[in-house]
């Protein structure tokens, strides 16, 4: 295991007016690791994800990203073009609502191929072949490559978004409730798929979820947030089997009693 982090945050603080969405948050992510951010609604999970990904600036604190050649980048001090390049190559972002990311008027193949084209791929046949291969990997029938996303079910849309994001083999993926809003059976299949892909490709991920079962299944480590603060963090099994903080205990017991 590498001892150098892929992504590190120190002292992240962000207020929305009087609301403390983030208070002095530290976070570390190692290569190939899945870190879950859990907590109740409004605890600051999505805000943290957006700040880590450079999509939202903190009032205080910094986020550092180590690129493939080992150079460190202060994410919030990076020039916009460099950050944009990161987002379309090394990084990926999976939204809770796939419609926010997908182009609904573009075929499945075009959606998956976009990042390849943005990166400079200029061979139609290769782009299409790669799109088909990715549809297969997310368990969408290759025959749907020329269909529009509006003809897809919710679970398929989410899988399409994942294919579109992973096609450039990012090293780091940010996911905000990727299984939110889906039927339980559809969720289970999607979680399985995410786990397989992330392991096989060795992708590091920050995964926001309010579902402890999702965290248990996918994450190596977990951070528990309450009112913008990290109240507990550690290895997933340790935190969920032996929660130290009373808020974590409350979360765990509410799952057990459900």
């Amino acid at each position: 295991m590498a001892d150098e982090t892929l992504l590190s945050a120190r002292g992240l603080t962000l207020h929305f007016g009087a609301i403390p969405a983030l208070v002095d948050v530290d976070a570390d992510l190692w290569p190939g690791e899945v870190l879950a951010v859990v907590g109740e609604s409004g605890s600051g999970k999505s805000t943290l994800l957006n700040v880590l990904a450079g999509r939202m600036a903190p009032d205080a604190g910094a986020v550092w990203y180590r690129d493939p050649i080992g150079a460190l980048h202060d994410v919030h001090a990076m020039p916009a073009p460099a950050l944009r390049t990161l987002h379309r190559s090394d990084w990926g972002f999976v939204h809770q609502n796939p419609r926010e990311n997908l182009r609904m008027a573009v075929t499945a193949g075009g959606n998956v191929g976009e990042r390849l084209m943005a990166r400079g791929s200029r061979h139609y046949g290769d782009i299409r072949a790669e799109a088909i291969s990715w549809l297969r990997q997310v368990e969408i029938d290759a025959g749907r490559v020329d269909d529009f996303p509006r003809t897809f079910s919710g679970g398929m849309l989410q899988r399409l978004q994942i294919a579109r994001t992973l096609v450039t083999h990012p090293r780091l993926v940010f996911m905000d409730e990727p299984t939110g809003g889906l039927d339980v059976s559809v969720q289970a299949r999607l979680l399985d798929l995410i786990r397989t892909l992330v392991r096989r490709l060795g992708i590091a991920a920050v995964l926001v979820t309010h579902d402890l079962a999702v965290a248990r299944l996918l994450a190596h480590r977990i951070m528990v947030m309450q009112r913008g603060r990290v109240v507990e963090s550690g290895l997933t099994d340790r935190v969920l089997d032996d929660p130290k903080h009373e808020y974590t205990q409350l979360l765990v017991s509410s799952v057990l009693s459900a």
Binding site: R103, E114, M117, A118, R122, Y124, D146
Partner: peptide, 12 residues
């Protein structure tokens, strides 16, 4: 990339 997506869609 978006402009190339348009061309991709046309060829498709």
């Amino acid at each position: 990339g978006l402009m190339h997506v348009k061309l991709y869609e046309d060829i498709t």
